[in-house]
Nucleic acid binder design. Structure first.
Length: 312
DNA sequence: ACTATTTCCTGGATGC
DNA sequence: TGCATCCAGGAAATAG
């Protein structure tokens, strides 16, 4: 499941492969009725746009788009309303149900970034760059034809992923980037919060990008039990957590993320941080520090792993 | 303003 | 073998 390190890895890979490429046409799968207009918006914003950059914000992948010279403006793009990708599996060659409603619209000059394509991979979402003739996988919800001749496809079996369009700079990714947070603002995030520290770490409005795996791993390294109320943790311990979070994320990024279930990056490469997990997915196995069996409990519906001896 | 709970979704694992 | 059930999990929606 892509959390910050996986998304970072994917975004870097994509940046290398599709930056500068132009989106010629877009196919979007059928969506469950309510958000049809958004699909039009997405197609309109993407088509004839150049991908300037690809980067990560929290767990989101952000494609910065700029209009191709002389191509019509996509019209005003509203706030980033999330869209549920289509549910219908494309058969054969996808036709393109895009809106071409803008004929005589004023041409734009060489503009800087005008819009952003925001992709959240959910749990099972993947973006693949491939040749047009390669097999369209089941659960493919979007296909972008690129000027380079390749295709950028969004595949997501479990459909927790989200696609949306934001106006440039208008995308609100939530809380602060954990890797940028200084100690004081990090500590301030938890002041007065009665929620378990694990829940606070997962709250994207506080920190963006930390998910279940890295929350558990960070808490282990900081010696804090996941159920500890955030407000009861003293500053020095939070300082420890501050360090642990950054350390865990940096190590994971360096190893290309954690590959559990079927995660692979943009190049189809697996990550290797799962080999460094000290508590996540190790229920009953001995703690690597003290040999006490790792416990698993459920917090807010999320399985949480910790060492009852090392974490207080 | 917070916090806790429910819901979405499918494939894989488990159980009978 | 087949069928039902459970589980994984991010974040939005709902309830308290």
């Amino acid at each position: 499941m892509p959390e910050l390190p996986e998304v970072e890895t994917i975004a870097r890979g994509l940046a290398k492969r599709v930056s500068g490429d132009v989106i010629e046409s877009v196919w979007l799968g059928q969506k469950p009725e309510p958000l049809k207009s958004t699909a039009q918006e997405i197609a309109a914003a993407l088509e004839h746009s150049r991908i300037a950059t690809v980067r990560r914000m929290g767990k989101h992948i952000v494609f910065d788009l700029e209009r191709e010279n002389g191509s019509p403006s996509p019209g005003k793009v509203r706030k980033p309303k999330a869209m549920r990708p289509g549910s219908v599996v494309p058969t054969g060659l996808p036709s393109v149900p895009h809106a071409k409603a803008h004929k005589g619209v004023r041409p734009t000059r060489s503009n800087p970034t005008e819009a952003q394509w925001i992709v959240h991979l959910g749990m099972t979402g993947r973006l693949q760059v491939c040749e047009p003739q390669s097999e369209v996988l089941k659960h493919t919800h979007a296909i972008l034809k690129l000027a380079s001749g390749r295709e950028l496809r969004f595949v997501d079996p479990r459909r927790f992923g989200r696609l949306s369009i934001a106006t440039a700079g208008g995308f609100d990714a939530g809380g602060m980037e954990p890797l940028d947070a200084d100690l004081d603002s990090f500590v301030a995030l938890f002041r007065g919060r009665k929620t378990p520290i694990k829940s606070a770490l997962l709250n994207q409005k506080l920190l963006r990008g930390v998910g279940n795996i890295y929350a558990d791993e960070s808490l282990f390294r900081a010696g804090i039990r996941p159920r500890r109320r955030a407000s009861t943790i003293v500053r020095v311990r939070l300082a420890k957590l501050h360090m642990s979070v950054k350390e865990v994320l940096r190590e994971a990024i360096a190893l290309g993320g954690s590959s559990i279930s079927d995660y692979v990056d943009a190049d189809g490469q697996e990550g290797f941080f799962q080999l460094r997990h000290r508590v996540y997915g190790r229920e009953g196995e001995p703690c690597l520090v003290c040999k006490t069996p790792i416990k698993r409990i459920v917090i807010a519906g999320r399985s949480s792993h910790y060492c009852p001896a090392c974490q207080k």
